[in-house]
Design a binder for these strands. Structure first.
Lengths: 222, 222
DNA sequence: CTGTTCCTCCAAAGATCACTGGATCATCCC
DNA sequence: GGGATGATCCAGTGATCTTTGGAGGAACAG
């Protein structure tokens, strides 16, 4: 084998990772998997794809070794192959945010106007320790169970309106969800405002929290 | 526009970055650009592509905004759009290295057997400060000029054999080049061994050095 | 203005990829 | 074993991507 061929083979391997990340649907699947393992059918439902297509995309991700599987009965659960994959996904978001002007527009169309206040990670940590704030996790319950901010309470967005009474009045509320491109915390804060509460969003989400090596609680549902 | 469409539009933007990284040739071009700006023709020559194909790939990278251009006379110089792009590329390498078993084989085929000793970044820094080691940069001269390790001397691989006399005997030599997948430092160390010198490689290259926020010298050719 | 250099655009051919519906396979429950 | 569920495999179609040669455009030197 010539050196040129050998060199091509190396870049061919790198490109396997790149190819896995080259489809919007696959990135959406990775986005979901970054929150915890999921069955094929659950992924298909959330990503708005039919099961066959979803399975095909998952096979592509699996061949690039960025996801791994676990079988439980008739279900197959997919998960990210490692933390480095989540970091790679975050880095793509970062580059896109920094260099693609069209993303800003797409973001506003999806998340709505920037009418909610943001809070940084450090402020959240400080005020949770001080106890003068209530942090709510508005993702679906399973994702909360898979890992959440220390001290956070689970208030899935679709239960929030019905469970408003559980939130003490007169205390600042901070909502968070998957990341800066997740609509749940935006909707949650708008809902709380509509009910006269003061509420803000964590600027990013659980993924960035973990990437910053901040502590995460899991399992015991609060 | 429905929420679903808006969400798809966001992932569409992320995928623009992923698509840019989905071709082995484009990754090879990025690998070169990570060392400094280059003209289309120079890139084509080094990557073993014809100019038309190279230009097409560069347009793809440019549309994804991961590279930028600068015109000088009749030449067009391409460069990475930012440090975050270099970090994205490194993260892809990291994920590939960690999860793709085939990469190990491809790597040995390209770089040859693991018969050379490696040195870590910290040891290099320490011994450069102590002055009991000579560090040589075996990349082409232009890349050295674009930025190099503090205290390093430029000994492009193709001049190394002819300039052996300039290297004092009895002092350890450490060679480095672009990164862990760059063949130059491997060849340099083997050449030095063949001439009875003691020589080792820096485990990775200039890119990782910069990513670790270590200082880099530029311009003044030593 | 003319010729040269370097790059980009265009059109065509071949390869690869995404999606779909139907069939098949693995597992579990009864 | 029979039926149900969840996932994968397969074949076909339409779309997209890669590569190539040739034409065209920008900058420059004489």
């Amino acid at each position: 084998m010539s050196r040129r061929q050998a060199k091509d083979a190396v870049f061919e391997q790198f490109a396997r990772i790149g190819k896995a990340l080259s489809s919007p649907k696959r990135l959406e699947l990775l986005d979901l998997l970054a929150q915890g393992e999921r069955s094929v059918e659950a992924l298909a439902r959330t990503a708005n794809l039919n099961v066959t297509t979803t399975s095909a995309h998952l096979q592509a991700l699996k061949q690039a070794r960025v996801v791994a599987t676990r079988r439980v009965g008739t279900k197959v659960f997919y998960r990210l192959a490692g933390r480095d994959v989540a970091e790679l996904y975050l880095q793509i978001q970062r580059v896109a945010e920094h260099h693609l002007p069209d993303l800003g527009e797409a973001r506003v169309n999806f998340l709505g106007p920037d009418d909610t206040d943001e809070v940084g990670r450090e402020e959240v940590r400080r005020r949770v320790r001080a106890g003068d704030v209530i942090v709510i996790d508005v993702r679906p319950e399973e994702e909360f169970a898979g890992g959440h901010l220390p001290g956070a309470k689970s208030f899935p967005l679709d239960q929030l309106a019905a469970r408003l009474a559980e939130l003490p009045t007169g205390v600042d509320v901070i909502a968070y969800c998957r990341g800066p491109y997740c609509v749940l915390s935006y909707d949650a804060v708008r809902l709380l405002h509509a009910h006269g509460r003061t509420a803000r969003r964590l600027a990013d989400g659980i993924l960035e929290w973990q990437a910053a090596d901040l502590p995460v609680e899991s399992a015991d549902v609060a």
